[in-house]
Nucleic acid binder design. Structure first.
Length: 580
RNA sequence: GCGCCCGUAGCUCAAUUGGAUAGAGUGCCUGACUACGGAUCAGGAGGUUGGGGGUUCGAGUCCUCCCGGGCGCGCCA
């Protein structure tokens, strides 16, 4: 039950009715007709801009059209009042019973309340994390990981067929460095003194285990052999080990993927060649020389002919190189093949979640995707800004040597997965985020995780107390919701009714942080009502002298608990029933 | 120099995708709470949404030009 979309249908019906009886022209475009919640509750429960957006095409003044619509709407079912305001807004108040019925729906459907079918089962591919398999995940990865995972969950709840995907960059020079680092540790594991890790190799302690495991598996087989012999083997082994590490770290955050795609796999299957041959056949690839960037000329710049993709034909600023000087593909070339591959697998809607440092690549990737799918695939790239790690307001110095933790795993161990996940969504993805280790575990209002969890725990607390006062109370569904008449109670119920709308809006905008903000707002309304009951005893949830009233209020509290739990679970955060 | 993101209350950030009198937290000021579970709640002050111009019924949001910050800028992903 989505009151807002239901009401929009009512308005559309009214407009179409007026069209068919000649009061309005036929065939009006109704796309821009919106139903909103007014900023100020004094304006009513709902408002619509219908009269304003249709005035011009209908050839009427907005207020006259509003007049016409209000006349019909006032008689519509469930509408208590409809009036015109401002330049032509129509403000509507609905019968309180309609809202109470919505609470009834919450109680009946439970956590499925808010599920939507706006996705229509359309396939969506969400690609996120995709960290290079060269080491454990760090804090910078945490944000994109959570963002992508919750966005995927959100889209699923909104009715899309979502695939969570991880692209393994296992074909570039970096994994060769990884292999050499692993080989060194392998020799170390076999008893060689390796001394200092040479510049350019990965020095991390985590590489020791890789070397040891390889020695365990293969003995001294690669100890004296040529690099050309051992490199592919060691590389493959190291990548697998690193990916296990990455999977473990993600699992600790509650994240799993449906698909892992290997860049090397695409290259070895010849997919890159195929896709780029196709572009070449269309005249979109040529050999040319790029201008140096103005104002910031690299020291070693020299003009050089390169194999270029005509990205400028698809909205990019300059054409982009596809081949390295050794003749191998650039990562961009394989990325083109990868996005084509996603399209070939049936994904017309693709979402990539990237870090802030990749912002400069959005245009070329969109251009390439457009080119390679003939414009059929829509790519949305979500950029996550940096996370600043703080402790008591002071920046935490990231030094591996000093022992200050930097890995994702350490962060999870320190504050718990739920806290990490929630905090990562307390900002819009394109705003930088402060993660204060002290604040996020504080029990205060300015720690949103606590504040929302506390509201949820309070709901459970009420239920426990009620079980003492009325041990034999029936299920929520049998309560007489008509007894919920206080303004604050109805306001709370109206907020619950917004949940499906929040889901749809957040899903369509690809903005999972809206869930966190909504939950905070809902928690605030609930805490407010709680305290109101403290001051006016007749408003308490449990009224010992009034069994029916208590029953109704417990049902309302159940509704709040259900929606908060539903939202937290959507975010991958476990709802707590007690706070120590 | 160019591109992308950003600029909103002292500070950190929202703003129903173009809607009405721009909202929360924090900080400051005032009050409520000896218990359905204390960690809360109610109120006050605080704004020319960086600046100018434009688009229209209507702009924090879209276009344009400046100012300021972050990221990026040919064979790293």
């Amino acid at each position: 039950m989505n009151i807002f979309s239901d009401f929009r249908k009512q308005i559309i019906d009214v407009i179409e009715g007026l069209s068919s009886d000649g009061s309005l022209p036929e065939g009006l475009n109704l796309d821009r007709v919106a139903v909103d919640v007014p900023r100020d509750a004094a304006f009513g429960d709902l408002s619509t801009n219908a009269a304003m957006v249709l005035a011009k095409p209908a050839g009427m003044k907005p207020r006259d059209l509003a007049e016409l619509l209000t006349g019909k709407l006032a008689d519509a079912e469930g509408v208590s009042t409809a009036e015109i305001a401002g330049p032509g807004f129509i403000n509507v108040r609905l019968d309180d019973d309609l809202w109470r019925r919505c609470l009834g729906t919450v109680l009946q459907t439970g956590k499925a309340f808010g599920d939507s079918d706006i996705g229509g089962g359309a396939p969506v591919n969400v690609e996120f994390v995709s960290a290079n398999p060269t080491g454990p995940l760090h804090i910078g990865h945490a944000r994109g990981s959570v963002f992508g995972d919750v966005l995927a969950a959100l889209l699923r709840k909104a009715g899309y067929a979502v695939t969570r995907e991880y692209y393994i960059n296992d074909a570039g020079a970096q994994v060769d460095v990884l292999a050499r680092s692993a080989h060194l540790r392998y020799r170390e594991a076999l008893g060689e003194a390796i001394g200092q890790i040479p510049e350019g190799l990965y020095p991390g302690e985590y590489m020791k285990a890789v070397g040891a495991a390889l020695a365990e598996r293969d003995g001294d087989r690669w100890q004296e052999s040529l690099e050309s012999e051992w490199l592919p083997v060691v590389r493959s082994f190291a990548i697998d080990t690193m990916m296990d590490l990455v999977r473990d770290d993600l699992a600790a955050l509650g994240i799993t993927f449906d698909v892992f795609t290997s860049e090397r796999g695409l290259v070895e299957q010849g997919r890159v060649d195929t896709v780029l041959d196709g572009l070449e056949a269309r005249g979109l690839i040529y050999t040319g020389t790029l201008e140096p960037p103005k104002g910031k000329k690299p020291d070693d710049w020299e003009p050089r002919p390169q194999t270029l993709f005509k990205a400028t034909e698809f909205g990019d600023e300059v054409d982009r190189p596809l081949k390295k000087s050794d003749g191998s593909w650039t990562y961009f070339a394989s990325d083109i093949a990868y996005h084509q591959d996603k399209h070939a697998r049936g994904f017309d809607t693709q979402i990539d979640v990237w870090g802030a440092d990749h912002g400069g690549y959005v245009k070329r990737m969109k251009a390439a995707t457009k080119a390679v799918t003939g414009g059929a695939a829509d790519l949305d790239v979500k950029i996550c800004q940096i996370v600043k790690l703080l402790d008591k307001g002071e920046p935490v110095k990231m030094s591996k040597r000093a022992g200050t933790f930097v890995t994702l795993r350490d962060l999870i161990d320190e504050v718990g997965p739920g806290v990490v996940r929630f905090i990562m969504l307390t900002r819009s993805n394109d705003a930088p985020l402060d993660f204060d280790l002290t604040k996020v575990t504080e029990q205060s209002r300015d720690n949103p995780v606590f504040y929302v969890q506390y509201a949820h725990a309070r709901c459970h607390s009420v239920a426990r107390m009620a079980a003492d006062a009325f041990p034999d109370l029936d299920a929520d569904q049998t309560a007489d919701l008509g007894l919920l008449t206080d303004e604050a109670e109805l306001a709370l119920i109206k907020l619950l009714a917004q949940w499906p709308r929040v889901i749809e809006g957040a899903a369509q905008a690809h903005e999972p942080h809206r869930i966190a903000y909504y939950l905070y707002e809902l928690a605030a309304a609930f805490h407010g009502l709680w305290t109101k009951g403290k001051e006016q005893t007749e408003l308490r949830f449990i009224v010992e002298s009034d069994r029916a009233q208590t029953h109704a209020r417990l049902a309302m509290v159940s509704g709040v608990r259900t929606v908060i739990a539903s939202g937290l679970e959507l975010m991958g955060v476990e709802p707590l029933e007690e706070l120590r």
